[in-house]
Amino acid sequence: MKTSLFIIIVLVSGAFAGLVHGTVNFAIVEPYLEQAIGIENQNLFASGEEEDTPEFWVEYEGYRTWQKSGQILAGVILGVSVGSLFGIVFALSRNALPGNNDIKKSLLLAGIMWFTLYIIPFLKYPANPPTVGEGETVILRSILYLSFIAISGFGAIGFYQLSKRLKNNKKVVALLGYGIFISAVFFAMPENPDKITAPMTLVNEFRLMSALGVTSFWASIGIILGLFWRKVFPQQETTHYS
């Protein structure tokens, strides 16, 4: 396997998937961000921290344009970043993944990573729109969120490795073990310390759209890297005959 080719297809796949993610967010998440920031502004006026003046709105429009335009760019950067992790895991686990072509293998791995690195942590620490979340707790919340992602990811790898040493019912044991382990961690981890003061309808709809956006990323990276891999490394197609 050529190092440069491997790196290039991983980065390009991540960039494309990130572009999809950013674009989907721009279309379906952005309206909820706008609503939430509108509430945040009203709270600032009500508390006297800011005044509802033309100067405020000029400054506001300036940084909101910067924030909105960053959605796509940040999507590409995040896509390249998470795509790099996906590329590493795919390259290392490809021979062990079921399926007889790289697209199926890549999609399956994307599904596993989507579930363990996103869905499980999301159930404990779901995404929140602006106005939810105190500045003072952002470091604590970041540590909790990252820790849970790491525990879930390494837990899945650990139980998979354990299952390989067992002779019968391998997959069931791994799945069951991971399920019990992550359930225990789920209840043991501290709750998000911040209270939700925004309307729950807005928060729930934002979370749904946010989850759809992230899901679009994982689906895209699975398909795109699988396609690239098949094209660039066709001799590595794994075949099984029985």
Partner: peptide, 28 residues
Amino acid sequence: INVSKSQVPKLAIIALGIIFAAGLFVVG
């Protein structure tokens, strides 16, 4: 059973690992 024995380049893993960490920090 034909299984690819192709080695995954360590240099690529290190480079992608650095890109992963840096990108995650910047965005998140």
